[in-house]
Nucleic acid binder design. Sequence first.
DNA 1: ATAGTTAACGGAATCGATTGCATAAATTAA
DNA 2: TTAATTTATGCAATCGATTCCGTTAACTAT
Lengths: 349, 349
Amino acid sequence: MKIKKEVTIYDLAKELNYSPSTISRALNNHKSISKKTIKLIKEAAEEMGYRPNNLAAGLRNNKSNTIGVLISRINRPFMASLISGIEETARKAGHNVLISQSNDKYENEISNCNTLYDSRITGLIVSLSMETVEMDHFQKFVDKGIPIVFVDRVPDNFNSYKVVIDNYTAGYSATKHLIEQGCERIAHFAGAQHRNVYRERKKGYLDALREHDLPIEDSLIVNFKTLSFEEGNKATKKLLKMSNPPDGIFSANDTAAVSAIMCAKKMGVEVPEQLAVIGFNDDPIASIVQPSLSTISHPASKMGAISAKRILDHSANNYDTDLSEITVLGTEIVVRESSLKRGVVLESE
Amino acid sequence: MKIKKEVTIYDLAKELNYSPSTISRALNNHKSISKKTIKLIKEAAEEMGYRPNNLAAGLRNNKSNTIGVLISRINRPFMASLISGIEETARKAGHNVLISQSNDKYENEISNCNTLYDSRITGLIVSLSMETVEMDHFQKFVDKGIPIVFVDRVPDNFNSYKVVIDNYTAGYSATKHLIEQGCERIAHFAGAQHRNVYRERKKGYLDALREHDLPIEDSLIVNFKTLSFEEGNKATKKLLKMSNPPDGIFSANDTAAVSAIMCAKKMGVEVPEQLAVIGFNDDPIASIVQPSLSTISHPASKMGAISAKRILDHSANNYDTDLSEITVLGTEIVVRESSLKRGVVLESE
DNA sequence: ATAGTTAACGGAATCGATTGCATAAATTAA
DNA sequence: TTAATTTATGCAATCGATTCCGTTAACTAT
């Protein structure tokens, strides 16, 4: 196999009798190069098949026009949409996207952090792994002035850009909705409480109960490890076998919520009549399950777009923007069949 | 904000009274450096917070230890799993993953191709956009000896690594399964026929009908544009309103298949008794819909892993491997409720 | 002991693009 | 017409790691 040699700006320079400086500036539309020359050089570049070498430019400028993404898992609907939003925004601005997944392991997160750092990324977008508590591995980015945007699963004790949804309000609304539908014993499928998202959702749940004078019962709050289908199944079975079973469930994700619906049906418990269910995320399965699952919808792709924009803006503004900006996005409650005990949605005051 | 200076091998060299050459070699475990020196240097590097600059190394070596991925859309279950498999395999080998999505536009595919090329990727993994016909934009990779792996949606007329599933056999098996369940008028939801995957699935469908002496009826073959939920809905409605409606549907994806199930139920047509349905992909929605959807399962993550491995091997073997290797993976038919007209699966001979 | 090896390391060019500091040419001002 | 600008371009250093050639010192074989 014959391998063609690359065309560099030096080749262009020789061919056109210009210096490499002029070629470089022309290709970057530098103002000190005449329009005519720019046009000439660009056409020749095109014709000779010139393609810039990002590695060389990156080395010289000490940045790579690349955004690094560090998440737990790609193949989750929310994460895939998040990345999609990041990619779209980054690409429009001429930036690349490097992805890495931690599989929810602290160790992987550290190692991925290092690898991304080694690539001299322009900025880092992170959704923390389930295990992460210490944040030291992010310090080297801060030291070098590389912006970090934490998204969705964010740290409590680290000053940085953050993009989140209002989990508290979402949890509150979801629970309130169940209450308005007539539920009096509402169970909660809670995620790991050291992660902001699950903690806030639970807080919203608790406050909604309190404000509507419903008792908080520990036996109705199930602490999940991963909010998986299997876990949801087991929890639902146990709840429904109680002498005094719940009449509603607010699950911190859709997977567990769907498993609850399916489990209830199997056990002969009618949804929503005997058990109203509401989930979180609006995954595709939510609209497919029967009865269809009421849930909270995340603007995942938008969150990705905003995160990417933070990095791009920060980098464009020469690092003088406020690093601690926090973006909180609203969510929407999507009412489907699984929660409609009364058959209608009450007007919220 | 104070920005720390980076530690380079020159800093290490000065500090330890070695030459940069020795530092570089030591960090790469070069055999001409004594064990003792390597240990010394590595410890000092760790202590001083040295981190390699991939851009510099990449420039010098003219490669970046980065695999480029070019797909239509990230937020599809199959694609997300594919990327996940790529990422995992690449990372284990110390490679990064750059992603880009074409949104099924030819134009985007070209532009992404160029951007990835500019980053001097080690290899490219591609699933073609729906629109792509011309393949010229991939030529520059071939010219430079950069391996391309086409995966799933592959070209017909381009010599390169390919990783696919046996779409023909899968289509044949799916159809045969419906026949064995007693279907006699089987409709097919076909995807765009210029893409290998949909063409092969249809071929399998047609051959299965022929070999079982069932007539092929054009009115039962619906040509889809995107195999979306809406399209599926419309097609199903039309089919079921026929004077002589089908008693089975083989859909080229799960989304359309699920829409068929839901549409049939709404129209009072029982699934699978009056209409058996089988899909393709085994998306999460397949096991959630009721009746649950029989389908063909893809080893998506494995396909990603294999694709990445092709690139890594090719690059490790100094570009002397056979470029035209094609990997065909088997699929599995997943029989659920939507196709079980007879209530049992017949033993295939 | 002497030639021949081997082990351990250093010098300096190189990868390709960028950019501060010149310089030459062209234009304008006076 | 001459000085003062402006416009257009070139020179050469630089980014950080790698690697082809040495070179020196230590070691081995005969």
